[in-house]
Amino acid sequence: MNHPTRSLSEVVHQRHRLGILTIAREVDRVEFQYLREALELTAGNLSRHLTVLEDAGLVAIDKGYAGKRPRTWVRITSDGRDALAAELRALQELLDGARTPQAAPAAAPAPGA
């Protein structure tokens, strides 16, 4: 049986990239500025994370205009959905695995009881 850490993706297992995929998973498209504010990232940092995700085929990026303002929209791909689901499963398995050995001392009687 594989250890859960082997299921973690190098691309997705990063707090901000996980955040980008989580937000994009909830909507049809999310705008660059919304991601910046929600994840508290600089434009440069966010661009770098988006490039990593786009190169891996996990998000698609569309550029357009709202009036005269340029807008960048991010959309999760079906590979991105699968990668996010796999990452969340692996994290949950790790969490469950970490909790199991701690359950035994907690069940022991308290001193003086």
Partner: peptide
């Protein structure tokens, strides 16, 4: 969606 930056 345009105003918030989230299109449903």
């Amino acid at each position: 969606g345009q105003r918030l930056g989230l299109r449903r």
